[in-house]
Amino acid sequence: MNPIVFVEALQKEIQSTQYGRHPAELYDPIQYIMSLGGKRMRPLLTLMGAYLFTDEWEKAIKPAISVEVFHNFTLMHDDIMDQAPLRRGQPTVHEKWNHNIAILSGDVMLVNAYELLLDITPDKLRHVLARFNRTAAEVCEGQQLDMNFETRWDVTEAEYVEMIKLKTSVLLGYALELGGIIAGADAESTNHLREGGINIGIGFQLKDDLLDVYGDPAKFGKQVGGDIIANKKTFLLIEALEKAGGTLLDELNGWLSCREFDKAEKVRAVTEIYDKLNIRQVTEQRISDYFAKGLSNFEQVQATPERKEMLLSFTRQLIEREN
């Protein structure tokens, strides 16, 4: 099976899905954000999770779209909280319409996500809804922790990893688990799928933190050093604050407290501090550890080697990404 078959099936379903028509101000923003594209990684993982155990993977298409709708709902509300002007290079919903419309349209998207799950057979629906509810709550918990961290300078590595696990990784885990549940997989295998998705997701976020400092601007797709300029609490900054001492810590705190500065100079200076503390090497090791855990989880799934290879190959490709 070629993964492009899954991609085409997802695109066809997304284009044909109707979220509502009237009033247009409520539903047009949903069609808009869903049309902006993106990697569609989460619904693709749901279909791959189902294909591990059944040839009837098509029955997972609508539930897979549910995951994508929920993901975009969180993005719509996150953009409001972050006051972000752009999403995937286009105006965010609250910029194109207004904040109130973005809030209400996002609320309806959550309802739409539940409606798309109703395509699941009754014998599995209760389990799926319970797992969806827990995952949705965890995503909100992660967002709240992220906001809490904005006013704290004592965030530990363990706290940061727990935050990114909740905010971004549990949804990857759920996407895979969902496919397995729909296909009738055993509980141990669906647990391995969920844990594998979570571990890979943590690795992705840590790699994103790393690429923001050390990535190739031509490949990364956004400004390198943006996190440093914004004093964003990333894994690298948290590690540096824990490891630095003496004049190096004074220098780092000086840049963090500085209100007026040359952006390029700050990025260069903080990067040099990271270099002196071997922060890049520490981060790369953590990334490698989480990716290895995730791949190990997938290896333990009770499915044929041929079917597992699609998921493993796709995951390895994602691991090698630089954007």
Rank of each mutant, 00 (worst) to 15 (best):
E95G: 08
T315Y: 00
T234P: 02
E242T: 11
W255R: 04
A60S: 05
R87Y: 04
K233W: 01
R307H: 07
D78H: 07
A137W: 15
K233A: 09
A292S: 14
A240C: 13
R259T: 14
K219R: 14
V69T: 09
W97Y: 11
L176A: 07
Q317F: 09
I238W: 01
P85M: 02
D250Y: 01
I30D: 03
E260Y: 08
G179T: 06
E260F: 15
E177F: 10
A24N: 03
R321P: 12
A84R: 01
T168W: 00
M310V: 15
I4V: 13
E162L: 14
K266Y: 12
Q223A: 15
K293L: 15
K266D: 09
R134G: 07
A303I: 08
Q144G: 06
L178S: 05
M34C: 12
T151I: 10
V67I: 15
N148Q: 14
E13R: 07
A9P: 14
Y27T: 06
P91T: 06
K243C: 15
S66Q: 06
Q317M: 14
S16L: 00
Q281A: 06
D208V: 09
E157V: 13
G89T: 04
P91A: 01
Y290M: 10
N100L: 15
T54Y: 02
Y27P: 13
Q144W: 10
R286C: 05
L277R: 02
R259S: 11
E284I: 05
Q15L: 06
Y32V: 06
K308A: 07
T92H: 07
T190F: 07
F314V: 04
E322L: 13
Y51R: 09
S35V: 08
